[in-house]
Design a protein around this nucleic acid. Structure first.
Lengths: 109, 109
DNA sequence: CTGTATCCTAGAAGATACTG
DNA sequence: CAGTATCTTCTAGGATACAG
């Protein structure tokens, strides 16, 4: 898994990939860019992910300083996930991906 | 594998991911953004990839219209890979990833 | 040099059941 | 609701050998 202890001799693009590569993190970021979300909200809005994998990805992103996990000591439990400043700073990447996908859709769709 | 037959009802970010997701395509794009490259050049400059996987990824990207493969009928063979216009249009994404990686390096390094 | 063709493996991802 | 804990499946990726 990625971590902030990864080799910092990698090229900048590779560094970025170690933190947001993989099948799901970009999609989690896409959702959290809209604001704080609860675990179940993420689970529903991310097509095809399951509970275990979502938990794993969120933990990894928390460890990497991209998101913050806030637990409300209630019953039933309530857990909210929010982007950190570092996480928010990924927005230009997400925006570029969004724009490219839009254009591609128009061409091919 | 990704293809241009993927479900176009996906959100734009997901569409982009189907075309450039995975462990290697971004790195191949990074290299080809600098211009046409031969197979062996790519093999050497992409850290950790092997021949089979590089071939697979290049075929997939060719099928998706991101790159063009040009074979020179020589002995020994010479094959060059070049970005198409569509492939080139991914540059903003690569640039954003590069910039983010740079900043991250400065903070953590 | 640029590929196929096999075979193999690690680990990501998924299904299911259970819990505070 | 938001998780663990297991067990299983799957496939991207890797190692190796060979070929035009």
């Amino acid at each position: 898994m990625s971590s902030n202890q990864d080799n910092l001799t990698l090229c900048p693009v590779e560094i970025t990939l170690t933190l947001i590569g993989g099948k799901w993190k970009i999609l989690i970021l896409r959702d959290l860019m809209q604001g704080t979300k609860r675990f179940n909200q993420l689970l529903k809005s991310i097509n095809g992910i399951n509970q275990k994998v979502l938990t794993q990805q969120l933990r990894s992103m928390e460890k990497d300083g991209l998101i913050i996990r806030k637990v409300y000591p209630e019953v039933p439990p309530k857990v909210e996930y929010t982007l950190t400043e570092l996480g928010l700073s990924l927005k230009p990447i997400l925006d570029a991906m969004y724009e490219w996908g839009e254009k591609y859709k128009k061409i091919k769709g």
